[in-house]
């Protein structure tokens, strides 16, 4: 094992990754609300302003459109800004700048103006927050060409997703599973190889279970419980949500013949709808059961005392696995 392997939380992995990027490239700047002295409301940027200065770790006014819009201008002036949006639903004031400007300026300028901007968004529920702090808006941004979307499911992937996002000359939104910020795991900071758009975390033969971000640890328990029931589940973890790692998923579905898709976001017009359609197109004659989706309801995210009913959990995902096995 490499000496660079350390056990740390996802928050520490993100912090270490940002630090590495800032050390390697003086053009990397961090921007966001409360990210300086405070280190961000989740402390992801803790200590970075102290070490890199106020000019590279920039506390911004409370104006999300302004943050993204000025990040675009800073990128045009030669920087690689990394923007923190404080909570998922706080991104919506910046929606216009992200979809009409950030996503399209490279195309609009005939490919002459790269926009290497990274937007970090803590997303998902499960932390008992008030309204607007628990949403999963990835599909909303997935519809807009020009953006890349990434997520992570453990500290190691969190470290490398940030590395890839900042190095990309395309704009990237990194959806960080906020309820996993304090999960611990091994991080190999010298692994060096790209993680790929999707990866198999558990091999199985009966059902493919695909998920990403905050639900991946839940899905790992599904794999364990299903095994006790005699069901062999292959777990596919998506790290890129745009583009999707469809070849890997197709290969898995063709082997297992069954597919369950899980995500926290509402199922209606969600990532699962796209994954399902693509697998029907690519693997129709290999499917032995209808594809099952497990996700949030077509509702505003509920008050936190109800979120356990809204969020897919072990039981709902296991139920879907058992259901597809009845065919």
């Amino acid at each position: 094992m490499s000496q660079a392997v350390k056990t740390m939380t996802m928050a520490a992995a993100l912090n270490t990754s940002l630090r590495t990027s800032m050390e390697q490239d003086p053009k990397v700047l961090l921007m966001g609300e409360d990210i300086g002295k405070l280190g961000g409301v989740f402390r992801i940027t803790e200590g970075l302003q102290k070490d890199f200065g106020e000019h590279r770790v920039i506390d911004t006014p409370l104006a999300e459109s302004g943050i993204v819009g000025t990040a675009i201008g800073l990128a045009i002036s030669g920087y690689r800004p990394v923007v923190e949006i404080q909570f998922d639903a706080f991104v919506f004031p910046a929606y216009d700048q992200i979809v009409t400007q950030l996503a399209k300026i490279h195309s609009r300028t005939g490919g002459t103006q790269p926009l290497p901007v990274t937007i970090r968004i803590p997303y998902g529920g499960g932390i008992g927050s008030p309204e607007h702090h628990s949403e999963s808006p990835e599909a909303v941004f997935g519809h807009h060409a020009g953006l890349r979307l990434m997520t992570a499911s453990d500290p190691h992937s969190a470290y490398w997703v940030i590395q890839e996002a900042i190095r990309s000359d395309d704009p990237v939104i990194v959806f960080e599973p906020k309820r996993r910020y304090w999960m611990r795991g091994q991080v190999d900071t010298e692994a060096g190889t790209p993680l790929g758009a999707a990866r198999i975390l558990a091999e199985g033969t009966d059902v493919t279970l695909v998920t990403y971000g905050p639900l991946t640890p839940v899905a790992q328990t599904v794999v364990e419980q299903a095994e006790k029931l005699g069901i062999s589940v292959e777990l596919v973890d998506l790290l890129s949500l745009n583009p999707l790692g469809l070849d890997l998923l197709e290969d898995s579905v063709k082997r297992t013949g069954r597919l369950v898709i899980g995500h926290e976001a509402p199922t209606f017009l969600g990532m699962g709808a796209e994954l399902s359609a693509r697998m029907v197109e690519r693997a129709f004659y290999h499917l032995e059961a209808p594809i099952a989706r497990v996700g949030g309801f077509h509702l505003p995210y509920p008050p936190s005392r109800l979120e356990e009913h809204y969020l897919p959990d072990l039981d709902r995902m296991l139920d879907a696995v058992e259901e597809v096995m009845t065919h």
Binding site: G69, G73, L74, Y79, R108, G110, Q113
Partner: peptide, 30 residues
């Protein structure tokens, strides 16, 4: 648009009203 903003030091026309004022401000911060 299609022209190189850096070559002309003139960005492509902004059609969504007012969006370009933020890009200018960010550029100036740079």
């Amino acid at each position: 648009g299609g022209w190189d903003p850096q070559k002309h030091r003139f960005h492509t026309y902004a059609i969504v009203i007012g969006t370009q004022t933020l890009h200018a401000t960010g550029y100036a911060m740079g």
